[in-house]
Design a protein around this nucleic acid. Sequence first.
DNA 1: TATGAATGAGGTTTCATTCAT
DNA 2: TATGAATGAAACCTCATTCAT
Lengths: 188, 188, 188, 188
Amino acid sequence: MARVNTRQLITDAAVRVAARHGISGASMDEIAVEAGVAKGSLYYNFASKDAIFERVMRDGFERLGTVLSEARQGEAPGAVRAVAWATLRALRTNPDLARIMAAEVFRTDRPWHEALELARGSVVVQYRDVLREARVARGATAADAEQITETAGAALFGALAGAFLDWLLFRQDQPLELVLDQVLALGE
Amino acid sequence: MARVNTRQLITDAAVRVAARHGISGASMDEIAVEAGVAKGSLYYNFASKDAIFERVMRDGFERLGTVLSEARQGEAPGAVRAVAWATLRALRTNPDLARIMAAEVFRTDRPWHEALELARGSVVVQYRDVLREARVARGATAADAEQITETAGAALFGALAGAFLDWLLFRQDQPLELVLDQVLALGE
Amino acid sequence: MARVNTRQLITDAAVRVAARHGISGASMDEIAVEAGVAKGSLYYNFASKDAIFERVMRDGFERLGTVLSEARQGEAPGAVRAVAWATLRALRTNPDLARIMAAEVFRTDRPWHEALELARGSVVVQYRDVLREARVARGATAADAEQITETAGAALFGALAGAFLDWLLFRQDQPLELVLDQVLALGE
Amino acid sequence: MARVNTRQLITDAAVRVAARHGISGASMDEIAVEAGVAKGSLYYNFASKDAIFERVMRDGFERLGTVLSEARQGEAPGAVRAVAWATLRALRTNPDLARIMAAEVFRTDRPWHEALELARGSVVVQYRDVLREARVARGATAADAEQITETAGAALFGALAGAFLDWLLFRQDQPLELVLDQVLALGE
DNA sequence: TATGAATGAGGTTTCATTCAT
DNA sequence: TATGAATGAAACCTCATTCAT
């Protein structure tokens, strides 16, 4: 159990350090100091630096996937606004992690690339599905709704991430609800 | 004369290498080989690795800004579709650069951060303005249009970048026009 | 424990290498080989090459200061000969270090310049004081003795260093006592 | 003739740059800028960086030798004070060069080492001779005077250099004559 | 007589990883 | 379960030198 705590300590520290310097710029030394453990403990708990960040990234996308599922279950189908809002709140819960995910999501050179793609894909699919449901809810046929592809899901995710980071870096004095309005303003 | 050519050779090579390994992972050795010059020539023409990528990033955003201006000048105000299409074509012209820009645009730890922010800001403003114009074109008052802020511009840019990279990595067999349709499908 | 030993191993090696090539010409590679440790160990134990030589130079002057204090305590005031002899013996104990100190003592461009100046100053003051005491011992008033300034101390140190290095490079076959006589021959 | 001027321009610049950074730290780039010529011109006028500094050092010691000869010719034999004063004035004429000479005089790793040793030797011999003459002038026999060796000459040179640099770095507000007094105060 | 772009060997430094304790 | 000294490959960068003009 102490071990579980140490692992969490390490991944949390890794996220904070990577938010400051990027993943490549995050040194194991600085992560160890930030976590308050010795450098050797990093290797006792993880096989490598890559293993730490694979865990970080996978956890991040899986958590986002869970958030989206829960948001959709609590609403009628096609509740784009609810899903978007759930996304923004999730990103705000851990802004450091949000920044890392935004910078890494389209990189193909990382060792965890393949594992990450699955998690990312299941998130994008959820955005696609909610967009399809919304089209159906507006009276479209199922065939028509299927014109919506994962590319649209990626676009919605990009819009949310772009708007959130804009808010995080430049407009934190404003309520997050305004960000939601601005993203949905694209849908007019 | 030769110097101008060499500098271009170097920045072009730097973009290709960074697309493969990220900016941190792009070594000066590999950039030199890719550019076909000696490593010393990199330092004769640029003060540092950072200086190379500052130039790369700044050129990228300035180029995008120019593309957007030109697209807007050739159309009636509020031509979101035209601006979006111009963006996608510009990204396709240099997909390697597009990937780097997407990964770097929200990083604040880079030495070129401040310079980049100006260039990024002027791009985002153009998206915001075209969204405002579109709202006016649909009959809204000027006051109503000004509800649209730069956050919406950032969202549009994020949507375009997200959709483009999704296409670049997974769906290059499809025509780019479909990406445009999917992004605009958010606006329904 | 091991660390203390390693640090000493490194500074000792650095002195030997710098005696051969000068401080600027002493490469970290050669120091590592000379010390019998890996190059990385140099940086585990010292922040930089400069930090190594700051330690070397500071230790050197502090050691000399201690030697002078002890020599003066064992003699009547104004024992110039005893102090000069203690200096020459100390220089002979580590001739490599003596050469480095002679070459570096008046450089102001080194990062350790300021720290070194303090150590050098306290040595020069001791030479000045023993010269003053000697003048008093010959019957001069205290006011008269205070005509002697640190410049005279610097001159005595320069005379000893110049004579010692002349001996070291060209006349090691002769006993060191002759060097003492030659320096004191200035005082006639 | 233009060439002669350029060579002088270069060696003068080299002295200034080396006074700031040491000889090893003096880059050909900085020397060229300081001299106001292109880097290529350095190599048109000198074979190498070493050739520049060999010229600088040799000129310096030869100039000092000339100054000493002239000072001795203008005085009665054994005029230690006159010779010491001539030395101090010569050092003050070009303090940058004086600093370089002090730092380099006992280095054996420079390519110009052997050439320099001759010039240095002839200077030291003059100090030795004037010390011998002084002893004779005080009534000693020739045999007794020959007890004075070149080591004493090196000591006198070291005393003058040490005192001068102490003045140069810390006490330039005082007249140089005081430095002369302090050095001669050793001879009491 | 002079230039400056280009070079590449070699320098200092970083850092993920190992391992004895 | 945890530590931290030690490692060495590989990174960034410097700089004396060359050469076409």
